[in-house]
Design a binder for these strands. Structure first.
Lengths: 188, 188
DNA sequence: CAAAACTGTTAAGTATCCTCAACAGCTTTA
DNA sequence: TAAAGCTGTTGAGGATACTTAACAGTTTTG
């Protein structure tokens, strides 16, 4: 009957996000890890509590240790996506600085400008620890995946997340996508 | 029949060390964690691969997250105990400095002098992360527990370990025990 | 439009984890 | 010298994790 276990500390959600950000299907991951695809489904829906041995197998498909995987559960779950009117104007002179993120107290970011050619893809997401990342799309459309949340961002929209969460950027459109990104620690 | 699973990444050894350094019996830990004492025995002997849910219960008895627990398996297993003649003389003038540990390249320690009164006990071991600890007994006898390794050190003997491993010091003797200890980062 | 290939989910059965209870060995008490 | 306390281990059983094989839904191919 597959009862959904409540509050299993969201282990399943983390695994699903990890798998999706690597662009794998349940079957692909299962084959790579040498386990059944069914148990991947069960784990991701928190319908079972996997043994450490099995979880180790599954994670062997990623460049991620058990310690790294469980450190993800300590990552805070703050607001990720912001509409254009949710940006806070903090600027300035000729250049307008609009703040992404509601409360940056205790945080320290460095923003940059990046442009993605059509079809560009960051591919396998590298997990950086103890860092934060943010961005605003200036032109074009960019698919942003952060943890289990995915959205195609258009000009004016933005993201903000703890970069301990797995993430991936893809330009699915026909035209170049430009955005402002930010990362820690600040360079000025 | 309880087949012993080989190379289960020594999860059991870590749990046993963690339990012993806290001075708990299998039954005490089991009661505190709300599980059976039998499964503690099975896990510690790597006779089973516990589910994440159960392991979480067990570790809830300690001030240790799953991430912290699995980060222990990444701790290198270097030489821990050194005989008196295994110390390297690097000193000095009127004071003799004898180095503990074969290769300190890439390490940074600060040694101190400590004295333990009879019966003194560090008790519940606090785990410090990203640190190293070393010491030399000058007088008296001191029981040192590091991970799953325990030894009563006498004058002239020494220890060196990654302090991510759980540890505990106890003076079981009748007289004061004096030793030189060291910790990271250095204070000079 | 249908066939093929993919996606995630689920039912049935096997393997394994986990609990309960008992056991053997060692220390302390009477 | 038990007897009662503890220690860690083990066997039998029920609970559940895991596999295999099938299902339903969506996208791709012909």
């Amino acid at each position: 009957m597959s009862e959904i276990v409540e509050k299993e500390e969201d282990l399943g959600r983390r695994l699903r996000a990890l798998r999706q950000v690597h662009g794998l299907s349940q079957r692909e991951l299962a084959k790579r890890a040498g386990v059944s695809n069914a148990v991947i489904s069960l784990i991701e829906r928190n319908a079972t509590s996997p043994s450490v041995g099995l979880l180790k197998k599954v994670l062997s498909g990623f460049p991620l240790s058990l310690a790294d995987f469980f450190s993800l559960e300590e990552a805070p779950r703050e607001q990720v996506f912001f509409a254009a009117d949710e940006l806070v104007e903090i600027g300035g002179g000729r250049v307008s600085y609009r703040q992404v993120g509601r409360d940056l107290s205790g945080k320290a970011l460095q923003m940059l400008v990046e442009c993605y050619a059509p079809g560009a893809d960051t591919g396998e997401a590298l997990l950086r620890h103890e860092a934060e990342e943010a961005g605003v799309v200036l032109a074009g459309e960019l698919e942003v995946t952060v943890g289990d949340r995915r959205r195609v961002l258009k000009a004016g929209e933005a993201y903000y997340f703890d970069s301990r969460l797995p993430h991936r950027f893809r330009n699915l459109g026909e035209e170049e996508a430009c955005l402002v990104t930010a990362s820690t620690p600040p360079s000025f």
